[in-house]
Each structure stands twice: as C-alpha cells, then as structure tokens.
C-alpha cells in the first residue's frame, strides 16, 4: 500500500439540521480527510497517474503548475510519495502556512505578484514552461480533463453509493471547476433531476481562497457549465465566513472558507424550497479551517 491509496473514499457527514426544516437533510463530503488535507488530492493524483501512464511525466521531468495552495500541497505530497520533482508557482500572498506545508515536502516555490492573484501565477508558469518545455511537465489543472475525471470516478460515485436516489441537490464552489463539473456529470448521469449548483464569489475582490469569480477570471477550459450545472450562486465573502464559523461552533467542524461558501449556499437553497418539501442536499467541504487562521495577517 502507498500513501496515495488513502486518497478518496472520504466520509459523508450529516451536518446540523436547518432550523424549522426537519425534512431537509444536509450532508457534508469531508474532503479534508484526504491525506493532503484537501479535495485537491483527487485531481492531483489523477493528473499525475495519467501523465506517468502516457509518458509525459518521468523522473527526469519537473512537474510545475500554478496553484493558490491546496493543489500545490497535493502535488508536493504525491510527488514526495512517488518520487517525482515538483515546482509550484503561487501568488506571494498565499498564506504562510500553505507555503510552509509545500516546502516541507521538498518542493520548490516560485512567487508571482500578489496583486494579480492566481491568474498572475498561471501567466508566470506559462512563461517558465515556454522557456524550457522539455524540462517540465505542466499538468495545467485548469485545462486537464483528469481533474473533473477524478470527481466523476471518485467523488460523484461515492456520493451515489452512500445516498443513492435520495440526493436532490449537490453544491460545490468553483475554483478550477473540476469538482462541480466531474461530480455534476456523474450525478446527472444517475438522475437528471438532481440539481447541481456552483457557488462563486460575488465580486472580483473577495476572501474565498481557492474560488474564482468567473466573470473577471481566466475561464478554465474544463468549465463547461451547460453540460451539468443548473445554477451559479453568487456568494458574499462575509456570508461564507460566517457559515464556516457557525459550523465550527455548532458541530466542531473547523472547515475552510470555500466549505463555508458551499454550506451557506445549501442554506439559501433550503430557504427557497416550499415549507414541507423534503430534500437531501450534499455540500463539498474542500479543506480545514486551520489553513486560514492567519488570513487577516500577511506573514
């Protein structure tokens, strides 16, 4: 057994009931239980496995990608576990804790401008790869079909195995969009009526690390919402942060802000349903809250 065999098959946990709505079940898919601490272990492993199988990644290459954190930690951990060299390009304002975790795995870090966000990191990695294309393997998580595939094969199938026909709604934040696209496709194949909802920040300037405000971002090639997304829900940073704080107080679940965004989205969807309607809503909880505790400080 290898460390990477622990990726996936995460628990689905019942979340505190919504007040006055006993007929609505709310579940959280605990992606923070992956060994790298986030949902990103799944696409990182799928992309690396595919690249090894197709000969794009060998022990002579350096895997390089742009990442605001969790994907980088996943690459770093999997690279160390399987013996591949990793380099990560990230905006300088990625939290200190995340930088330190990636470094702990022996990964090289390259910084891009803190003013340009993750898109600045994407542009920087493209420049680096263009200068020495043979030296690097660039998975490009924003365009790599293995990213949603990991969720089609894993996350979506696991949710169906646990809840089957009960699930009525699925909610996840949009970063690369891999989670919502891959899981959404799998759920829609099972039953078209399952509503797939993508949560995005309500403004270009936001505090939901890992999520993208699509109207002002480089749009990922894998983001094709017409295939399986029923609704895009804009989310205010404060509302998502409050939902995350509430869950840590009420349920002992110290979750990250993108998880808070999904849970806040679930509460909004629930509030819209007729009073006596039954529903079974599943939210993705991408990572733990520890990674954001120093967010108000730049270290």
């Amino acid at each position: 057994m290898n460390l990477v065999d622990l990726i996936g098959n995460t628990p689905l946990l019942p979340l505190p009931a919504i007040p006055d709505r006993p007929r609505i079940e709310l579940w959280g898919k605990c992606e923070f239980m992956n060994p790298g601490g986030s949902v990103k272990d799944r696409p990182a492993l799928q992309m690396i496995r595919h690249a090894i199988a197709s000969g794009q990644l060998t022990h002579e290459h350096i895997l390089i990608d742009a990442t605001s954190g969790n994907t980088g930690i996943a690459y770093a951990m999997i690279g160390a576990a399987l013996g591949y060299r990793i380099a990560l390009v990230m905006p300088e304002n990625v939290s200190a804790a995340r930088q330190q975790i990636a470094r702990a795995f022996g990964t090289e870090l390259i910084f891009s401008s803190p003013l340009e966000g993750s898109d600045g990191a994407i542009r920087r990695v493209r420049e680096i790869v263009a200068e020495a294309p043979k030296r690097y393997f660039y998975p490009d998580q924003y365009s790599n079909e293995s990213n949603p595939l990991a969720h089609y094969l894993g996350t979506g199938a696991e949710i169906l195995a646990t809840l089957g026909d009960r699930i009525t709604h699925f909610i996840a934040g949009i970063g690369t969009s891999g989670t919502v696209m891959g899981t959404g496709r799998r759920l829609k194949e099972h039953r078209r009526a399952i509503r797939v909802i993508a949560v995005e920040p309500d403004d270009a300037l936001h505090g939901l690390e890992g999520l993208k405000h699509m109207p002002t971002s480089l749009v990922p090639a894998i983001w094709r919402p017409e295939e399986c997304v029923d609704e895009i829900l804009p989310m205010a940073t404060e509302e998502a942060w409050n939902a995350a704080e509430c869950l840590s107080h009420q349920a002992g679940l110290l979750i990250g802000h993108s998880a808070g965004a999904a849970v806040a989205g679930a509460h909004r969807i629930a509030a819209r349903l007729p009073p006596r309607e039954t529903a079974c809503i599943v939210c993705i909880l991408p990572d733990r809250g520890e990674r954001y505790l120093t967010l108000s400080r730049r270290e």
């Binding site: 605001s68 990230m90 939290s95 966000g117 936001h206 939901l208 690390e209 890992g210 002002t216 971002s217």
Partner: peptide, 9 residues
C-alpha cells in the same frame, strides 16, 4: 492587497 490569492484576474 487581497488577503487571499485565489481567482482574481
């Protein structure tokens, strides 16, 4: 400076 690094173009 945004406190987080994700997403902005």
């Amino acid at each position: 400076v945004p406190a987080i690094a994700g997403g902005q173009c």
